[in-house]
Lab assay of single mutants.
Amino acid sequence: MEVRTIKVFTTVDNINLHTQVVDMSMTYGQQFGPTYLDGADVTKIKPHNSHEGKTFYVLPNDDTLRVEAFEYYHTTDPSFLGRYMSALNHTKKWKYPQVNGLTSIKWADNNCYLATALLTLQQIELKFNPPALQDAYYRARAGEAANFCALILAYCNKTVGELGDVRETMSYLFQHANLDSCKRVLNVVCKTCGQQQTTLKGVEAVMYMGTLSYEQFKKGVQIPCTCGKQATKYLVQQESPFVMMSAPPAQYELKHGTFTCASEYTGNYQCGHYKHITSKETLYCIDGALLTKSSEYKGPITDVFYKENSYTTTIK
């Protein structure tokens, strides 16, 4: 009895394709271990004539594949690729409408935090270190965002349907971005203890939790000093293409032309909904596939993004 075979390709990165001759009487799992086709788990399936010449994702289970996976995804987590594939199996079914010149995501599976993050990423200057993220990001900007969303979920250790947080998501993504040249110098002034300067680099240099107003941050924000008295913390120097200011959701007025974009969060910790506000020729609110415009805006804002380049204080 002759062994019926077909020729397929296996890959971990969709760049390096490895030619395989597979036995049609055995499952993919018996031949390769966990195997995925377009995100779908085909591990328990036997090869079919229609699979001839198709590319299958496999887990990096030998040295060659491990090197290829690390170079593309910059992670050695053995569960990463499987999590990416199972997320992709959902995100490829989502709709990605162009809204006001940006790629958004039609609401499904509690994905409003991903839509808000995706919209924000198209408006701030950011370059990702893992080629996987950078490639998928370019495709997302062009309207094909399924891979990018699935990668975000995998890097953030999230599953489809789980509630997510924009600030946490951005923080994970910033860790995989090139923020080497970003720098922030802060000064804390206390009447009792004097003053202390701190220099922050990388992710810490672009994120701040405690106030939404970048102007206020430049002037000074009140913080408790270690001595128990009130101290003032203010920005001395900022070198970065953008800054992200966050605070627990509270009524906040966004003035046209003073910011790049913002995240609105309605609801409580267990259950809520994100919308995205962007400042173009007027203010726009993007909620999944829905767009509304207004000249002014007041609502429960939790993150505001500002364009920056270089700032030095005039406070002496």
Rank of each mutant, 00 (worst) to 15 (best):
R66Y: 08
L212E: 04
K106G: 13
A87Q: 12
I223D: 06
I277P: 06
A146C: 10
L173G: 04
P131E: 02
I301G: 01
N268R: 04
E253C: 03
T260H: 01
T116S: 11
Y73K: 00
Y311W: 07
I15H: 12
R66F: 13
T91N: 06
P78K: 14
T159K: 15
G228C: 03
P224D: 14
V12M: 06
T10W: 08
Y137E: 02
D135H: 10
Y297A: 00
T292W: 10
N309F: 07
N268M: 02
T313R: 14
L119S: 06
T192M: 03
E308W: 09
T232A: 04
D165C: 10
E168D: 01
Q216F: 01
Y297F: 04
Y274Q: 05
D23H: 14
K93E: 12
F32M: 15
A132C: 07
A146K: 09
E2V: 11
L173Q: 02
G257L: 01
C261V: 04
D180H: 09
G164K: 01
A250G: 06
L81Y: 10
E204C: 00
V236R: 04
Y73W: 01
M209R: 08
Y252D: 08
N61M: 12
T198M: 13
W107T: 02
T198H: 13
H48F: 13
F242P: 08
M245G: 09
G82D: 12
A150E: 09
E168A: 05
T55G: 09
E125W: 00
T159G: 09
Q216G: 02
Q31C: 13
G82S: 14
Q98H: 12
A132R: 09
V189S: 12
A108N: 06
T10R: 13
L254F: 05
V160W: 03
P97V: 14
I315N: 15
C227M: 01
L173S: 06
K46V: 14
H176C: 03
V12S: 07
K316G: 15
L81G: 01
V236D: 07
C156M: 03
H90P: 04
V189Q: 12
L153P: 00
A145H: 00
Y274S: 04
K46T: 13
Q230F: 14
S104R: 05
Q216E: 14
G257V: 06
D23I: 09
K93P: 10
W107P: 06
G257D: 09
T35Q: 04
V243H: 05
G53L: 11
L290Q: 11
G39A: 14
M209H: 15
K183E: 06
D180V: 05
P47R: 06
A154C: 10
Y72A: 15
T192C: 06
T55C: 10
N309A: 13
T10V: 12
Y72E: 04
N49T: 12
A136E: 14
L235G: 03
E71S: 00
K275F: 05
K106Y: 10
I301A: 00
Q251D: 14
D109L: 05
L81P: 11
I223M: 06
L121M: 09
V166G: 03
L283P: 01
S263E: 09
T314E: 10
F80H: 08
K229P: 00
C285L: 11
L81C: 08
Y57E: 07
T282V: 12
C112Q: 11
F128M: 06
T55D: 08
E264M: 05
T278Q: 10
P241D: 04
K201A: 03
V3I: 12
K7Y: 12
A177E: 09
T199I: 09
H48K: 14
F242S: 03
C112D: 00
D303Y: 02
T302Q: 08
Y137F: 12
S295Y: 10
A250H: 12
T226H: 15
Q238E: 05
V206K: 00
K93G: 09
T10K: 12
D77E: 12
T43P: 05
Y265C: 08
Y96I: 04
H48R: 11
V58C: 10
P60R: 03
G33E: 08
L59G: 10
N129C: 07
A140H: 02
E296S: 14
L212T: 01
F148V: 04
E71C: 11
C182L: 04
K54S: 13
L118A: 05
Q238Y: 01
Q238F: 02
V160R: 01
P130N: 05
K298H: 13
Q122Y: 03
L88A: 07
T11K: 08
N178G: 08
E52I: 12
C227E: 00
